[in-house]
Each structure stands twice: as structure tokens, then as C-alpha cells.
Design a binder for these strands. Structure first.
Length: 210
DNA sequence: ATCCCGAGGG
DNA sequence: CCCTCTGGAT
């Protein structure tokens, strides 16, 4: 698998979708971390709907760590798994206060020790709050990578490694935005809109199904 | 029924 | 790796 193929795909996507970006547009690490935890298996639009009030009420790890669980549940009750997530957020905030001086750590190893934070969420925070090279692989990025022949594995972590091996480090963050955007808007799981896709000339999936 | 930018436990 | 968690929209 050549690096030039991945670069060509990214160049084409950048031209086609210059505005592709993370839908959860928070630079504050704590806010991005919380929003990303909430966004697991829930539409980003619904998360963006509640975050203004949520961060007014709980602006930092300390206020969330000290809040009653019921108060957090009430503030996020419109998102999926809100009880489980409220528990994660409170426990996560307590760990931030007790072990990280109330600040979000800027390393993968530390981030994944936080309750409710897995590899994908950790990479989102690293890339978008700290501008540290990382390539978060969600279901969309994974699917697109497989269809384009950029990854052969089914495991998200292995797909991340396969992508990182083919994409220059300085493009990892942008690659996650572009591949994610393509996956959400065009290269859908169910009914992919191949006629709208700018990168079909590199796509195994398109070749096979035409 | 299936999807939504998953994580944790078995 | 597979299952569950759990809720609303399409």
C-alpha cells in the first residue's frame, strides 16, 4: 500500500470538502472530552444542543466532580445512554481532580485511564484540543478505509495503525476529518452515494459493485 | 430494522 | 472478539 495513494485521496478530498471538520468544535480540552464522551452512539447534533447549558452549569472538572449524579443526568438526559454517561462523567471528573490537578492530560496513555474514555475518544482529544498528531478511527473512518483499500483489518486499532503507516504524520488530524466527513455524508454504510463520491477511482468497493 | 464519530466487561 | 449498555430518529 503506497503512501502516494493515500496522499492522492486526501488531496482530492481536501479539494472536494474544504470545510470538513469535527462537528464537536471545542478547543477547551475538558469541553471536547465531555462532548466526545456524550457523542458515543449519539448524533453530534443532539450533543451540540445541550452543551451550552451543560458547560454553563459544569464549566470544569471540579464542578462536575462535586455535582450530584442526578444533576448530571438531568443535564444530559436527551442523549443515548445518559445514565451510564452521567456516571462516566462524574467518575472521570473525579479522576481528573484527584490525579491530574483538574486538567485533561495530553497523552494517550493517561487519557485512556479515564472512565468512559477509550482509544477513539482519547485520540479525538489529542488531535483537536491539543493539536497532537493522532488519527481517531470511528466506524465511519474504518468503513471508508476498508472500502478504499487503505486497511484490511476489521479492528479499529489495527486500522488506525494501517492508516498511520500510509499517511504522513502531519496529515493525520486532517485525514480523520476528511475520511470521517466522507463516511458520514457520502460513503454511508447502507446506501453509499457513489455517484457523489470524488474518490471512486481509488475505491475497491466501487469497482466491485459497478 | 438500523443507525448514531464507543466503551467496558466477559 | 462478542455482547451489552439504552434512546430517539429514520
Amino acid at each position: 500500500m503506497s503512501e502516494s495513494k493515500a496522499n492522492s485521496i486526501l488531496d482530492t478530498l481536501e479539494t472536494a470538502f474544504p470545510d470538513a471538520r469535527l462537528l464537536l468544535d471545542f478547543r477547551n480540552p475538558f469541553e471536547l472530552l465531555v462532548a466526545t464522551v456524550l457523542a458515543a452512539q449519539a448524533p453530534d447534533e443532539r450533543v451540540n444542543q445541550i452543551t451550552p447549558h451543560l458547560f454553563q452549569r459544569f464549566p470544569d472538572a471540579l464542578s462536575m466532580a462535586e455535582a450530584p449524579l442526578e444533576a448530571i443526568e438531568e443535564a444530559i438526559k436527551t442523549v443515548s445512554y445518559f445514565r451510564q454517561k452521567a456516571r462516566f462523567l462524574k467518575e472521570m471528573s473525579k479522576v481528573l481532580v484527584e490525579r491530574f490537578e483538574g486538567k485533561v492530560p495530553a497523552s494517550l496513555e493517561e487519557l485512556v485511564t479515564l472512565p468512559g474514555v477509550g482509544r477513539k475518544t482519547a485520540n479525538v482529544v489529542l488531535a483537536n484540543a491539543f493539536s497532537i498528531p493522532a488519527l481517531p478511527v470511528d466506524t465511519h473512518v474504518a468503513r471508508v478505509a476498508q472500502r478504499l483499500g487503505l486497511a484490511k483489518s476489521n479492528d479499529a486499532e489495527k486500522i488506525e495503525m494501517e492508516l498511520c503507516a500510509q499517511i504522513p504524520q502531519e496529515r493525520w488530524i486532517r485525514a480523520s476529518h476528511l475520511l470521517g466527513f466522507l463516511g458520514r455524508r457520502v460513503c454511508k454504510a447502507r446506501k453509499p452515494l457513489c455517484e457523489q463520491c470524488p474518490v471512486t477511482r481509488w475505491c475497491d468497493f466501487f469497482e466491485k459493485n459497478r
